[in-house]
Design a protein around this nucleic acid. Structure first.
Lengths: 192, 192
DNA sequence: CAATAAACTTGACAGCGTCAAGTTACTGGG
DNA sequence: CCCAGTAACTTGACGCTGTCAAGTTTATTG
C-alpha cells in the first residue's frame, strides 16, 4: 500500500502544513508563503504545487489542521472540568478561549472570510467535528430548536474570544478567563 | 489655508482610501494592494508612499474609515428602532449585523489581529466612537461593573456577526436577523 | 527488466511593497 | 513679479511572491 513514504521527501504534504502552522504562529497569517514553507521543508519553491494547487489550498489545509487542534483544545478543557452540563459548557468555552489566545493567527484564518476554501472536504470534516463539540455541550440546555441554544453559546464565546485577540483594548484585561466567567453568567441557560 | 486641493491630484489621500474600501468590498482584503489603489486614483505606483509609509498604514486608514461607517450603521438602526432600552440595544445589534454582512471584507480587517496598526490615533478615535455606541445602549442594563454588560452584549453580537459571514454553514439561514432575535433572548438583560 | 507515472527541480514571468533619485507644480518671501 | 524652496508625484530598480512550463530523478507496476 501507499502507507510508506512517497518518492523523495517522505510525506511532504504533512511537512508543509506543519511548517505553515509554525510560520503562521510565529509571524502571522500574512507571512505565510509557499516559498517559505517549501524552504522550511527543504524542497524547491515549486514542490508544494504537487500537493497544493494554489496558496489558497495550502491555507485551507492549515486551517483544517487548526480545527483539529481547536477541537482537541476544547475536549481537553471539558475533560478537566467537573462532570456537570454547566461545567462542561464552560469548559468548552475555556478551551475555545485558550486556543484563540495561544493561536491567534490560526484562529484568524479559521474564521476569516477569504482565507480558505469552505467547500474543501477535509476542512468541512474538521470544522464539523468542532461544531459537534459545541452541539454536544449545548444539548442539555436545548429549547424548542437546539440550534438556538448552540448559536447563543457559540456566538458568546466566539465573540469574546475574537474580541480578546483583536487588539480592541480588552487585550490587557488582568484575567480574561475570570472575566468570561462573569460574561457567561449573562447567558440564561437552564438544563431542561 | 490648506483647505483647497493639494498640488497635483486634489486630496489623493482620501481618494486612495476610497479606492481601497471599494477594492476590499469587491475583491476582499487580500486583493488590496498599493499599486491597484494608486491606479484607481490615476497616480503612479509610488505616489501613495507620501501619504501612507507602508501598506499597513493604508490598511489602517481603510479600517478607520470602516469604523466610521460601522458606527453610522449602528446609529441608523438605533434611530429606526422604538425608543426603549431594549429596542435600542437590539437596534444597535441589527446595525452591527447589517454592516458585517454588507461589508464582510472590511469587517474582517477591522477585527483581524494583523491587518492594522492598533496604536494609530485616527483608528483609536473611530474605534472608540464605535465602542461608545455599545456602551451607551448597554448602560440601562448595567450591573455592578458596566463593562460586564457591555462585553456580554458585544460578545454576543460580534460572535453572531462573525460567524454569520465566515462561511461556517450558517450563511444560508433563511432570516439571520430573525434568528438573532431569538439568540438575543438568551441574554439575561433587565433594566435596573 | 522496461515503461509509466509520480515527485521534485530549474527557469521564467508578471505583480507586489519599497527604496532612491529625478521631475513637476505650488507656495511664500523678497 | 520673480525666484528659491518644498511638497507631490514619476520613473526606475530591487528582491520577494504565486504560478506556469519543461526537464530530471525516483519508485512502482505490468
Amino acid at each position: 500500500m501507499a502507507e510508506g513514504k512517497p518518492h523523495h521527501h517522505g510525506n511532504l504534504r504533512a511537512a508543509l502544513v506543519e511548517a505553515g502552522v509554525a510560520l503562521v504562529h510565529r509571524d502571522g497569517p500574512d507571512a505565510l508563503s509557499i516559498r517559505k514553507v517549501a524552504a522550511a521543508a527543504g524542497v524547491s519553491h515549486a514542490a508544494p504545487a504537487h500537493h497544493f494547487p494554489s496558496l489558497l489550498h495550502l491555507r485551507t489545509a492549515i486551517v483544517a489542521e487548526g480545527y483539529r487542534r481547536f477541537t482537541a483544545s476544547m475536549e481537553t478543557a471539558i475533560a478537566e472540568a467537573p462532570n456537570t452540563p454547566r461545567d462542561a459548557a464552560l469548559g468548552a468555552c475555556l478551551g475555545y478561549l485558550r486556543f484563540a489566545r495561544a493561536n491567534s493567527g490560526l484562529f484568524d484564518m479559521m474564521f476569516g472570510t477569504t482565507d480558505c476554501i469552505h467547500d474543501d472536504p477535509d476542512l468541512r470534516e474538521t470544522a464539523d467535528a468542532s461544531y459537534a463539540v459545541l452541539a454536544r455541550i449545548s444539548a442539555p440546555f436545548a429549547g424548542a430548536d437546539p440550534v438556538d441554544t448552540e448559536l447563543a453559546i457559540w456566538s458568546m464565546i466566539h465573540g469574546f474570544a475574537s474580541l480578546a485577540i483583536s487588539g480592541n483594548g480588552m487585550h490587557d484585561a488582568p484575567d480574561l478567563e475570570e472575566l468570561f466567567l462573569r460574561i457567561f453568567e449573562a447567558l440564561d441557560l437552564s438544563a431542561r
